[in-house]
Structure formats: structure tokens, C-alpha cells
Deep mutational scan, measured.
Amino acid sequence: GTEIELESKNGQREHYTATSEDEARKIIEKAVRRGIKRIELRGASEQLIRDMQEIAKQIGLQYRTDGSL
């Protein structure tokens, strides 16, 4: 699965493990709508990382991946 670590603007951290790319995408989209400061992805697919970079650029988000592409 993909591990997703979120940090909201007030510094609250949340951790999710998505079993599918679809689920990961839903978690990320929800977080973005809620207003999130930072997202870290571990074990994400190349496609998901590309999507994440696109989203991050659009809304000026900090993100990090573990680089295991």
C-alpha cells in the first residue's frame, strides 16, 4: 500500500495507509480540499507521484516522497 502522512496548517498530523492508488488519490484530494500544509508519500506509484506533483504545483503545497520510484 501507499503510506500517506498529512500535516494540516495547525500542525496536526494524520497517517493513512491506502490499499489502492484510487484510495490514495481520494485521501489526497480530501486533504487538499480541507487545506493541508504538507504531504508525504511512501510507496506511491510513479503515476501517483506525478499526479501529486501536479496538485502541489497548482496549490503551492509542500510534498515529499521517499524517492522509491
Rank of each mutant, 00 (worst) to 15 (best):
S45G: 04
R50M: 10
R42I: 08
Y16V: 08
L61R: 02
D66F: 00
G11V: 01
E54S: 07
E29H: 09
A18H: 06
E21F: 06
T65N: 08
Q53S: 09
E3M: 08
A56S: 04
G67W: 00
E21L: 11
I59R: 11
Q62L: 10
L69H: 05
M52F: 05
E23L: 05
G1C: 14
S8A: 12
V32T: 04
R64S: 15
E46Y: 02
Q12F: 11
E7N: 03
S20Y: 04
Q53D: 13
G35L: 03
R33E: 13
T17W: 12
M52Q: 00
I4L: 05
S68Y: 11
E23P: 01
L41Q: 01
T65L: 04
L6F: 11
V32W: 03
L61P: 15
L61S: 03
H15T: 13
R64N: 15
T2I: 11
E54C: 10
K26C: 12
L6I: 15
G1I: 13
L41R: 00
G60L: 08
R25P: 00
I36R: 00
E23N: 05
M52W: 02
I4T: 01
G35E: 05
E3C: 13
K30Y: 07
E14Q: 07
E3N: 09
I39E: 00
A31P: 00
Q62K: 09
A56H: 03
T65M: 04
I39V: 07
A44R: 01
L6N: 01
Q47F: 04
R25Q: 03
A24M: 06
R64H: 15
E40H: 12
Q12N: 09
L41Y: 01
R42C: 09
S68I: 12
S20W: 03
I39T: 00
A18W: 05
G67P: 05
Q62V: 10
R34I: 13
R64V: 15
Q62A: 04
L41N: 00
S20C: 07
K57C: 11
G43F: 10
R25G: 01
R64P: 15
Y63V: 15
I36M: 07
G67Y: 01
L6P: 01
E7A: 04
S68K: 07
I59D: 05
E14A: 09
E46A: 11
D22T: 09
Q58V: 07
L6E: 01
I55L: 14
D66H: 05
K26N: 10
